[in-house]
Design a protein around this nucleic acid. Structure first.
Length: 236
RNA sequence: UUCGCUGGGGGAAGG
């Protein structure tokens, strides 16, 4: 499985596939994890159709898909904006008494957000909060990003605070999403406040955090301040 | 039977 994963992650999917077939023919028999590795690689390399075929072949060969493999396929469908089929898979899991993980729902929420169904995604997140599996900081970040990008920065800030009230600690990514949202709405001062807040929480801004801020500063004409930030990056 | 290993989700700019 490690070898199959290596082939996949270095872009050599045909080799990975050959290896899986060789395992199937002459052992050791591939297990659910073997197939999941290949399934994920196929989904991520724009070959969802082949992923679906592999998923079905795996079932024909007598392996029952688990929560992980379903999640991988659901994510594949979502990335292709095929949300309804993703939801069908979710129903199928339910029929098989497979209980979705946080990651499963988070993938679906990302799909919903990226095709504009933000209020449904928000309801979904609240449903997770009420009845589990609980949303985590990634689940919130996806919705934060969608709210920011659809001109609902204030609602994003509300949700960010609600996430904290509910006991989750924001990370570098969630702060960066908000900072970028503030910058894009030309609310640079608020972006700077969040940036300072990160420091107070011992969160270390990364390149993307700085890039968002520098971009916002430049596009609002505050070039010398942007320059200072670039120097600060250079020095730390 | 127990234990261990390997698989899944989020952010910026530039043409």
């Amino acid at each position: 499985n490690s070898l199959v994963d290596c082939f996949c992650k270095s872009g050599k999917i045909p080799y990975a596939w050959e290896l899986v077939n060789a395992m199937h023919d002459s052992g050791p028999t591939p297990n659910i994890i073997t197939y999941s590795i290949l399934l994920d690689a196929l989904c991520k390399s724009q070959h969802l159709d082949q992923g679906i075929a592999l998923f079905n072949e795996m079932i024909e060969r007598g392996l029952a898909p688990d929560v992980w493999s379903y999640t991988i396929l659901i994510n594949g469908y979502c990335k292709k904006q095929r949300i309804d089929e993703a939801i069908n898979l979710l129903k199928e899991m339910h029929l098989k008494n497979l209980v979705p993980h946080t990651v499963t729902y988070t993938s679906l929420i990302d799909g919903l957000c990226k095709c504009g169904r933000i209020s449904y995604a928000w309801k979904f997140l609240n449903g997770m909060h009420d009845s589990g599996p609980p949303p985590d900081v990634i689940t919130y970040s996806i919705l934060l990003d969608a709210l920011c990008k659809s001109q609902h920065l204030d609602q994003a800030i509300f949700l960010f605070n609600q996430m904290i009230e509910r006991g989750l600690a924001p990370d570098v990514w969630s702060y960066t999403i908000l900072i970028n949202g503030c910058c894009k709405s030309e609310r640079i001062d608020e972006a700077m406040n969040f940036f300072k807040e990160m420091h107070l929480k011992n969160l270390v801004p990364d390149t993307i955090t700085y890039t968002s801020l520098v971009d916002g500063l430049c596009k609002s004409g505050r070039i010398s301040f942007a320059w200072q930030l670039v120097n600060a990056m250079h020095n730390s």
